[in-house]
Amino acid sequence: MKPAKFNYVRAGSVDQVLDLLEQPAGFVKILAGGQSLNPTLNMRLSAPDMLIDINDLDELRGIRVEEDRLHVGALTRHAELERSELVAGHAPLLTKAIQHVAHAAVRNRGTIGGNVSLADPASELPACCVALDASITIRNKQGTRVVRARDYFKDLYETDLQENDLMISISFPLAGDTTVCAFREFVRRRGDFASTGLVVNAELVDGVFTSFSPVFFAVANTPVLAAGVAQLLVNRTITGEVVEQAVAAVDHDVEITGDSNMSEEMKRHLAGHYLREVIGELYG
């Protein structure tokens, strides 16, 4: 299929984008990598009146460390994340996860901002943002705000982002010597969206988890930080029994719902299985 008609504006500045968003001529959409938006246009699942192409906005690009945080511009391509040594050094969970996002050709175009704006519940990156306690910088005509990833994901495809907002960047706390992380997802074919996933970022000090952030994804409308699970594992000696308690706590923490790809029971089973595996992997 071909998209329905739309107007196309190649934005020359962030301000221009904000202006266009403020007084929209109908239904307006920002176009970043187009790797999620364009399939929906092609299938006429979405028919905006105008696309604002932000690909020329260099100020939205780039990966740098500033004030003890790793800043990633919204327009940073998945492939740039994948190859970045800064990311590998300071947010290794992202490096682990990004290889599981789509295929090379899609990663060359898709952007972290587009991904986190869309907030597909089956996507790896929103879960990483929550696990890493990232902060998201959002701007509109009225000003700039920084939202914690842990407060940003509201519901299915619903985030803190409003119609007049442009995502500018995402920042991550820097990993330290004691930071450990793990990634698990269930896909039947490499590069597919997950049907159940778990990412963990943790601090392991002298054989004890001083922090543990397990985030389940593709099991509910948003990525879910399992606080109860974390509590059971932090500052405890990890025994088989503790692990089983943690697995049992998943059900309490996460309201798992099935979807067309996978039943609720299977998601629950896999969530527990991955948690067991990840604890084993990190705890050694």
Binding site: Y8, G34, D53, A105, V106
Partner: peptide, 17 residues
């Protein structure tokens, strides 16, 4: 696209300008 592979079905012609 600028030396790296991309899906031409998910890129608008306008974006190639």
């Amino acid at each position: 696209f600028d030396g790296r592979i991309a899906r031409s079905c998910l890129t608008l012609a306008a974006q190639a300008h």
